[in-house]
Amino acid sequence: MAAHTDQAFDAEELRTVVAEALELPVEEVTDDARFKEDLEVDSLISLEIAVRVEERYGVKIDESRLAEMGSFRLVRELIEAELNGASAT
């Protein structure tokens, strides 16, 4: 697994992972862009993002929870918290 729990978290790398899943330019994935309303994320795309995040960071996010989170900023904060918690143990 390509988890990054031993390295510093890079929010821009995560932004790129999400943009690639959405097939959008990375500039469109702003901190406050709302997944459903602004980026048109549906359940299939939520699943794709969740899979890519788990593959890259080793953090599992249920795709339904991802859709509820609403914005890139909230997903970033969740992943940072998970990685910090994982590295603290």
Rank of each mutant, 00 (worst) to 15 (best):
M1K: 08
M1L: 12
A2T: 13
A3F: 06
H4K: 14
T5P: 00
Q7L: 13
A8S: 11
A8N: 10
A8D: 12
D10N: 15
A11W: 01
E12Y: 06
E13F: 10
R15G: 11
T16S: 15
T16L: 11
T16Y: 01
V17F: 02
V17W: 04
V17E: 11
V17R: 05
V18K: 09
V18I: 15
E20T: 12
A21S: 15
A21G: 14
L22G: 07
E23I: 00
V26Q: 13
V26N: 11
V26A: 15
E28M: 13
V29K: 03
V29P: 04
V29Y: 00
T30M: 07
T30F: 02
D31W: 07
R34W: 00
R34E: 14
F35K: 01
K36T: 06
K36W: 00
E37Y: 00
E37D: 15
E37I: 07
E37Q: 14
D38T: 03
L39N: 04
L39G: 06
D42Y: 01
S43L: 03
S43C: 06
L44I: 09
I45Y: 04
L47E: 04
L47N: 09
L47R: 02
L47C: 06
A50T: 07
V51Y: 00
R52W: 00
V53C: 12
E55I: 06
E55L: 10
E55Q: 14
R56S: 13
Y57A: 07
G58N: 02
G58A: 05
V59P: 08
V59E: 11
K60W: 06
K60P: 02
K60A: 15
K60R: 13
I61P: 06
I61L: 14
D62L: 05
E63V: 08
S64G: 13
R65I: 09
L66F: 08
L66S: 02
L66E: 08
A67Q: 12
M69H: 08
G70L: 07
G70N: 05
S71T: 15
F72C: 04
F72A: 04
R73N: 10
R73H: 02
L74A: 10
R76H: 07
I79V: 13
I79P: 01
E80A: 12
L83C: 05
L83K: 03
N84R: 07
N84T: 09
N84M: 09
G85Y: 06
A88T: 03
T89M: 04
